[in-house]
């Protein structure tokens, strides 16, 4: 039997991945190119929150909105200062991709420098830090706070995004700008503003996901690159142009990764858990070979 704690850990991890692959998909819909710095947005968010925890002494969970804000602002800056001007100058697909790789390198360097400065100026742990959690007693069962908070956050953020996209004027503009930017422009929609807002939301979602990281594992600046593969696997499995697919993809990859790693590390296989990335990698390869349009193609006719 699988330990229920492992299932709960898989749930938490999947909640995080779902938010990240959802937000990656949102940026891909606007830019049409995958952003290789997406994992870093999560780390930006968590370092922002962590700073307020150790310096201002805020209670851990109170800094969640700050993680959203930091992730969102950094994402908007990337879009407005780099991607958007590059595209205006006629950069092609591959150039945008190379740019996103450069942003990843620069962002991780910035985070490393920031971590050094944090340590130097405030004498606090700035790498491999963790967040302490509370335990809730629900009907006699001890449950980690993160299980509740991350699940509720996913539900709340998904509901928020759904209402925003489907029930507001802004949502209509956003969907129009994503589907046909030229036509949207003619209709008087400020496509640039809509895209920037999408990036803010995406960065914010990523920031929230990043906030969950230190509850599970020691968090350092390079973690954003390490989680990039499962994020991509989830997003591609979801069918890169489907938000609902990205969420489902996040849960499939998340549960497969945690449970698969656990099972493979048990006797008789005893595989080192270091091979963990092999699981999202396998999912990625299988998806690209067998279902290149992603699982979303199973329930929608590719919108």
């Amino acid at each position: 039997m699988i330990d229920p704690n492992i299932l709960l850990d898989a749930l938490v991890y999947s909640n995080m991945l779902a938010l990240l692959s959802l937000s990656l998909t949102l940026t891909i819909m606007t830019l049409k190119v995958a952003n290789f710095a997406h994992g870093d947005l999560a780390i930006i968010g968590v370092y922002g929150a962590y700073t307020f925890i150790v310096i201002a002494g805020l209670a851990t969970y109170l800094t969640m909105p700050l993680a959203f804000l930091f992730g969102g602002i950094y994402a908007v800056l990337c879009y407005l200062l780099i991607y958007s001007p590059l595209r205006r100058r006629g950069a092609n697909f591959v150039m945008l991709m190379i740019a996103s790789m450069a942003i990843d390198i620069a962002t991780r360097a910035l985070l490393q420098i920031y971590a050094d400065l944090l340590k130097f100026n405030f004498k606090v742990y700035s790498r491999a830090f963790i967040f302490n959690d509370f335990t809730a007693n629900i009907l006699g069962v001890q449950v980690r706070g993160l299980v509740l908070v991350s699940s509720l956050s996913v539900i709340a953020l998904l509901a928020l995004l759904y209402i925003l996209l489907m029930k507001t004027k802004f949502g209509v503009a956003m969907r129009a700008a994503i589907e046909n930017p030229a036509l949207a422009e003619v209709l008087g929609i400020n496509v640039e503003k809509v895209y920037a807002t999408s990036w803010f939301l995406a960065g914010g979602f990523a920031g929230i996901a990043g906030f969950f990281l230190p509850f599970r594992i020691p968090t350092s600046p390079d973690l954003g690159f390490i989680i990039l593969l499962p994020i991509f696997a989830a997003s591609i499995l979801g069918g890169i142009n489907s938000l609902s697919g990205a969420v489902v993809g996040g849960y499939i990859v998340g549960f497969s990764e945690i449970l698969g790693t656990y099972l493979l590390s048990q006797p008789p296989i005893n595989l080192s858990t270091a091979y963990r990335p092999a699981i999202p990698f396998t999912i990625l390869i299988i998806t690209l070979l067998l279902l290149p349009q992603g699982i979303a193609s199973l329930w929608s006719r590719g919108d």
Binding site: A34, V94, M97, L228, L229, I236, F281, L284
Partner: peptide
């Protein structure tokens, strides 16, 4: 497409 290829090769 190039970005999928890139993440596949990086991984």
């Amino acid at each position: 497409r190039e970005d999928y290829l890139a993440i596949t090769l990086i991984a």
